[in-house]
Design a protein around this nucleic acid. Structure first.
Length: 425
RNA sequence: GGAGAGAUGGCCGAGUCGGCUGAAGGCGCUCGCCUGCUAAGCGAGUAGACGGGCUUAAACCUGUCUCGAGGGUUCGAAUCCCUCUCUCUCCGCCA
C-alpha cells in the first residue's frame, strides 16, 4: 500500500512512478476523495468536540440541580448530524482504502523501465551449461523412466498439474528441502520457521495477494482461509500489527512449505513436467529490515539463494526484472533462472524482492529505531531459496547420463543415504 | 462437541451506582540528579492512529478516535445490551 501522505504531497511524482508500471490515472479518484474526506473529517470532529463539552456540562448541571433538558435536546440533534457524517466518512474511507489496496508498489529508481520481460536485464551468469554428447532428455521423460515421478497416477488422484514422487524421487525432494534449510540456517543466519499452511484473508491482504489476485489462490470452502501460495505470506505476516524493537532488526526467517496456486490463466503453459504445478515445495527466505539497509539486504538475500545453486552445481543467471515484469508488491526484483536443457533456456527458480514498506504498511509492521523515536514502517524482503520441484527437475536434466541414469549431486548424497546415482528400471 | 472464565497502555494490574479515567498502582524503559564503581535512592517523562496549526523538517501546540472486533442504548460508555473473534480451565472425542 502506498503512503496516502506521499500521494497527497507529491501526486505528480507518484503518478510518474506508476506510469513506469504502465498504470495511469490511478490517483485521480483518490485525490478527490481524499480532499472530501478531510473536509468532512474537520466538520465531524468539530461537532464531536462540541458534544464532548456539552455532555460534560450536562453532568455538571445535574450535579448542581439545574435542568439540562434543553442542552440535552441540542446534543441529540448534533448527535444525529454526527451519525450522518460518520456514515459518509466511513463510505469514503472504505473507498479510499480499496483504491490504495489495488495500486501496486512504486518501482525503485534502479529498475529498468519496460512493458514486459523483454526489458529485463541480465545481471550475471554462473556456471556453464553442460554440452551433452548425446540427446539429453526432459525431466518428464527421465522421471517416469527412473520410476521416481508419476504424472499419470497423480492425475488419477488430483487431476492435471500434480505430481506423485516415488522412491528415490520422494527422497530427493526431501533431501533438497533439508539441504536448503540447513544451508540457510547454518551458513546464512536464518531462523527456521514451520508455519501454518492455511492463513487468514488478512494475511493475504498484508502481503498483497488480496484483494487483487484472489483467483490465483485456493480458498478453503466455507471459511475465510487460504492455502498458502508461498511461505512469504505466513513469514512476513508473523509480525503483523506489531511494533518491533529496532535492535531486533534485521530479522532473517526461512521456512519450507508446500505452495498452492490455482494457475488461473496459464492453461497450456508448461503443461509437461513439474515446472508449473498446483502444489509444489519451496524453501523461502524472508527479511524484516530497517529502510536504510533493505537494498544491501536484497543483494545479500539474492546471494544466499544463489549459493545453494552453486553448491548443487547448477548453472544459472540472475535477471533484474523490468517495471513491466515485477510483482505487485515489489519495488525491485531479481529472478534466478536455472539452466534447463529441455527448454534450452534458463527457467525461473527463484524470485528475490524488496517490497520496501509496501507490505509493512498493509500488514502494519513497524519498528522503533530507539526508545525515544516514533514507530516507523519496516521494510520487508522475500526470495525463494529456492523452489524445490524445479530444483529436482534441473538436477534430473543437468545430471543425466547417456544411459538415462542421473548422478546425485555430491552435497545431496548425505541426505540420500549415500546414494550416488539413480538408474532406470 | 458440552460446561465455565476471561480479553484494559511495552508488561503486570485497578476501574465503584455509566460523567475531568486515555485510563490508578506497580514493573520496565528514557532523561536528569545523587553516589569511589556497581547496586540502591530521588525527580521528571513514557500508547497508537487520523486531522488542524506552526516549521524547510523535526520538536512543539491543538482536536478527534481507540480499553479484543463490530453494532446498539444514552446528553455522555472501558463501564449497560446484542453479535462475532480469540485465549484459558474442566469433561468428551481425536492424530
Amino acid at each position: 500500500m502506498l503512503d496516502a501522505k506521499l500521494i497527497r504531497a507529491k501526486p505528480e511524482m507518484v503518478e510518474a512512478a506508476l506510469e513506469k508500471r504502465n498504470i495511469s490515472g490511478a490517483l485521480d479518484r483518490f485525490i478527490v476523495l481524499d480532499e472530501e474526506r478531510r473536509a468532512i473529517l474537520g466538520k465531524v470532529e468539530e461537532l464531536k468536540g462540541f458534544r464532548n463539552n456539552a455532555s460534560m456540562e450536562v453532568g455538571r448541571m445535574k450535579k448542581q440541580g439545574i435542568e439540562p433538558e434543553a442542552l440535552m435536546e441540542q446534543v441529540r440533534q448534533v448527535g444525529m448530524e454526527i451519525k450522518a457524517l460518520d456514515d459518509q466518512l466511513k463510505a469514503i474511507e472504505d473507498n479510499l482504502e480499496n483504491i490504495l489496496l489495488n495500486i501496486p508498489n512504486l518501482p525503485h529508481e534502479s529498475v529498468p523501465v519496460g512493458l514486459d520481460e523483454s526489458a529485463n536485464v541480465e545481471v550475471r551468469r554462473w556456471g556453464d551449461p553442460r554440452s551433452f554428447d548425446f540427446e539429453p532428455k526432459a525431466h518428464w521423460d527421465l522421471g517416469p523412466e527412473l520410476d521416481i515421478l508419476d504424472f499419470e497416477r497423480a492425475a488419477k488422484l488430483s487431476g492435471a498439474r500434480f505430481t506423485v514422487y516415488k522412491g528415490a524421487g520422494a527422497r530427493l525432494e526431501r533431501a533438497v528441502i533439508n539441504f536448503y534449510l540447513d544451508v540457510h540456517t547454518g551458513q546464512h543466519g536464518y531462523r527456521e520457521i514451520l508455519p501454518p499452511f492455511m492463513v487468514s484473508a488478512d494475511c493475504m491482504t498484508g502481503t498483497g495477494q488480496l484483494p487483487k489476485f484472489a483467483e490465483d489462490m485456493f480458498k478453503v470452502e466455507g471459511r475465510e482461509m487460504y492455502l498458502v501460495p508461498t511461505a512469504e505470506v505466513p513469514l512476513t505476516n508473523l509480525y503483523r500489527e506489531e511494533i518491533l524493537d529496532g535492535a531486533q532488526l534485521p530479522i532473517y526467517l526461512t521456512a519450507y512449505t508446500p505452495c498452492f496456486r490455482a494457475e488461473a490463466g496459464s492453461h497450456g503453459r508448461d503443461t509437461r513436467g513439474v515446472i508449473r504445478q498446483h502444489q509444489f515445495n519451496k524453501v523461502e527466505l524472508v527479511k524484516i529490515t530497517d529502510p536504510d539497509h533493505s537494498y544491501d539486504e536484497l543483494e545479500k538475500l539474492t546471494a544466499d539463494a544463489e549459493r545453494v545453486l552453486q553448491l548443487l552445481g547448477l548453472p544459472y543467471r540472475v535477471v533484474l526484472l523490468s517495471t513491466g515484469d515485477m510483482g505487485f508488491s515489489s519495488a525491485k526484483t531479481y529472478d534466478l533462472e536455472v539452466w534447463m536443457p529441455s527448454y534450452q533456456a534458463y527457467k525461473e527458480i527463484s524470485s528475490c524482492s524488496n517490497c520496501e514498506d509496501f507490505q509493512a504498511r498493509r500488514a502494519n509492521i513497524r519498528f522503533r529505531p530507539d526508545a525515544k523515536s516514533r514507530p516507523q514502517y519496516a521494510h520487508t524482503l522475500n526470495g525463494s531459496g529456492v523452489a524445490v520441484g524445479r530444483t529436482v527437475a534441473a538436477i534430473l536434466e543437468n545430471y543425466q547420463e547417456a544411459d538415462g541414469s542421473v548422478v546425485i549431486p555430491e552435497v545431496l548424497r548425505p541426505y540420500m543415504g549415500g546414494l550416488e546415482v539413480m538408474i532406470p528400471v
